[in-house]
């Protein structure tokens, strides 16, 4: 009943051709090209000049690259340490099914669906040093000395963006964890309560271990997405002031599309890709161990 010979070739190309062409042409090929470009000095217009690994040694000695890497790592840690624990906490609270839980859940999820441009502009207004909501709140609470030009000062720019990223994505993790926690049967929890286990004990000895695969996945998801984070940095601070909030992706974009240094831009993007893949591999190995331990 299966197609043979030429018919098989035709049907195979009909069904798989479009996806394979698009996937190879738009993702695989550009990645290889990017690696190739990273070996050249090139501004996109004049001839490419082959310089072997010079771009990579420049990368190693580029202070801004290291600042960007450090900031990317801060952004990732910030995401991991705020979004996941807070998300899990609210998922557990919502699990008690207090009145209004569904309403709370819906509102918490709202920012997840909105574009970063909307959120970036909105929060830019909130952080505005003169007219912003945040400084206004602080002043009316008598905390004038806490006011800042949030996005304009080196000490607060990155933190301010990290806060907005967390604000947007906590709702996502709440929904994911709520879904996972619903998979635990009520009988298990009831039995534990009857046995006299405290709520804390139930959370740490039953709920968290049982949803460990989901936690593994969210950690991986969070790291991968934070590492390549770009949008709000570009929209809110542009990487400034004085590189204080520059991250890997924004630094790559600046080199490629503002400074027209395609060779070095490609080097940074190759570094970003390999670093991300390596980290994803290490994390999935590491947390996989955790999975075994709990099973």
């Amino acid at each position: 009943m299966h197609e043979k010979g030429i018919k098989r070739l035709v049907s195979g190309s009909f069904f798989m051709g479009p996806a394979l062409l698009i996937f190879t042409g738009i993702i695989i090929l550009p990645i290889l090209m990017s690696m190739y470009y990273s070996l050249f000095q090139w501004d996109g217009i004049s001839e490419k000049i082959f310089i072997a690994f010079d771009n990579y040694s420049r990368l190693m000695h580029d202070p801004v690259l290291w600042i960007s890497l450090k900031n990317s790592i801060w952004l990732t840690l910030g995401a991991l340490l705020i979004q996941l624990p807070v998300g899990l906490m609210f998922a557990i609270i919502l699990g008690y099914k207090l009145k209004g839980s569904n309403f709370f859940k819906s509102i918490y999820f709202t920012p997840v669906m909105l574009s970063t441009a909307v959120l970036g502009i909105l929060w830019g207004q909130i952080y505005d040093p003169n007219f912003g909501l945040l400084n206004n709140v602080l002043i009316s609470l008598g905390l004038e000395q806490w006011t800042h030009a949030w996005l304009g000062e080196e000490s607060t720019a990155l933190l301010s963006v990290i806060a907005v990223v967390a604000w947007q994505y906590i709702g996502f993790y709440i929904i994911v964890y709520v879904g996972a926690l619903q998979g635990i049967s009520d009988e298990v929890l009831e039995a534990a309560r009857v046995e006299g286990a405290s709520e804390w004990r139930i959370i740490f000895s039953i709920q968290i271990p049982l949803i460990w695969p989901t936690i593994t996945f969210t950690v991986l998801n969070c790291v991968i997405n934070s590492l390549k984070y770009f949008d709000l940095i570009y929209i809110m601070t542009g990487g400034g002031p004085n590189n204080a909030s520059e991250v890997l992706a924004s630094y790559m974009m600046r080199n490629a599309f503002r400074l027209m240094d395609y060779g070095y831009g490609s080097t940074i993007s190759t570094f970003l890709l390999l670093f991300g893949l390596a980290l994803a591999f290490i994390i999935s190995k590491g947390l996989g161990q955790g999975n075994k331990k709990f099973q």
């Binding site: 996937f23 550009p30 990645i31 090209m33 992706a249 490629a256 490609s266 893949l277």
Partner: peptide, 15 residues
């Protein structure tokens, strides 16, 4: 493919 950051493809896609 899900692990690939879009940024790693942007320069070649642009050219």
């Amino acid at each position: 493919g899900m692990l690939i950051p879009v940024h790693s493809t942007l320069i070649p896609l642009f050219t």
